[in-house]
Design a protein around this nucleic acid. Structure first.
Lengths: 150, 150
DNA sequence: CGTATGTCAGAAGGACTGACATTT
DNA sequence: CAAATGTCAGTCCTTCTGACATAC
C-alpha cells in the first residue's frame, strides 16, 4: 500500500463531515428546514445583506433558476426578503428576516455545541497542528486541481 | 469566540471532502457514472461479493426500494450481477462484473493520485498525528451522537 | 445592440412511502 | 402465521436546460 496515510486521512475527514451532518439534521428537522435551505440562509448571512441572487447562486454552486425557486420558497416561509437593488433595477439583494436570523442562530448554536463536544479531552496544541496540516493538504489539493483544468 | 479551533477543524475537513469530490468528478463523467453509482460500486466491492442487497442498502443509508432501482440500472449497464443466494432464496447477492471491477479500479486510481498529490511535502509523522486526532474527534462525535438518540 | 439578471415552463434524477409476492 | 427480502407503482423534492421579459 503506497498510499495508506492519505487514504485514511480523507476517510476520516469524510467521516467527520458525515457525522457533523448527522448531528445537525435533527435540529433542521425540528424547524422543518432542509439542508439546502440552511445553506442558503448561511450564505445570505455570510454575504451580509449585500449580495444579489446571482452572487449567492455562484457561492452555492447552483444555477440562477435553481436559486430562484429556493429563494421563492424561503420568502414564502418568511425567512428571507428580496429587495430590488437601488443601483440596478434588474438585481435583487437578499436579506434574512428576523425569523430567518433567529432560525440560523438556533441551528448554528447546535452545530457549535457538537463541535465543542467533539474536541473534549484533546490537547489544543494538537488540534491546532491538525488544522494547520489540513490547511496545507487542502492547499496542495486545490493547486493540483486548478492545474488540471486546462 | 469559545469555539474557534473546532470551527476551523470542521471547516477544513469539509473543504477537504469537497475538494476531493471535485477531483473525482471529471473521472466519473469520463465514464458517465454518477457519484451515487460509484458509491454503490465501491460498497459492493468492499463487501467482497458476500453481501445481500439489504446489506448494501444499510451500508449506503438508503431504503431497499431505492437500492433496487440503482442496482437495476447498474445491472443494465453491465457493471453488476445479481445472484440468488444459495442459502436463502429470497436474497440476492451482488457482485461486480469484470467491467464494473475495471471501472472502479480506474476511478480509484484517480482518487489515489489526488491523495498522493495532496500530501506532497508534508512530514509523514505529522500526517499520522493528524489522522489520529481526527479519529479521536470522530469517536467523540459518534459518542455524543449515539448518546443523544434516546 | 449585445449582455446581465431574474423568472417561468418542462424534463430528469434520485429518493421515499406503501403495497405486494415470495421465502423463511 | 409473523418476519424478511426484493420489487412495483406512485409521489415528492431538487436541480437542470431552454426560453423570455426587463434593465443595463
Amino acid at each position: 500500500m503506497v498510499n495508506g496515510v492519505a487514504e485514511t486521512l480523507t476517510g476520516q475527514a469524510g467521516l467527520l463531515t458525515e457525522l457533523l451532518t448527522s448531528a445537525v439534521e435533527p435540529h433542521l428537522k425540528k424547524v422543518d428546514i432542509s439542508l439546502s435551505t440552511f445553506e442558503l440562509l448561511t450564505a445570505i448571512r455570510a454575504a451580509g445583506g449585500k449580495a444579489k441572487q446571482v452572487d449567492i447562486a455562484r457561492r452555492l454552486g447552483v444555477t440562477p433558476p435553481s436559486l430562484c425557486e429556493a429563494v421563492k420558497a424561503a420568502v414564502g416561509r418568511g425567512l428571507v426578503s428580496q429587495v430590488v437593488s437601488p443601483t440596478d433595477a434588474r438585481a435583487k439583494t437578499l436579506r434574512l428576516s428576523p425569523k430567518g436570523h433567529s432560525t440560523v442562530r438556533n441551528i448554528l448554536e447546535a452545530v457549535n455545541q457538537a463541535e465543542r463536544e467533539m474536541v473534549v479531552g484533546i490537547d489544543p496544541d494538537e488540534l491546532q497542528l491538525t488544522v494547520e496540516t489540513l490547511r496545507r493538504v487542502n492547499r496542495n489539493l486545490a493547486l493540483s486541481l486548478s492545474g488540471s483544468i486546462p
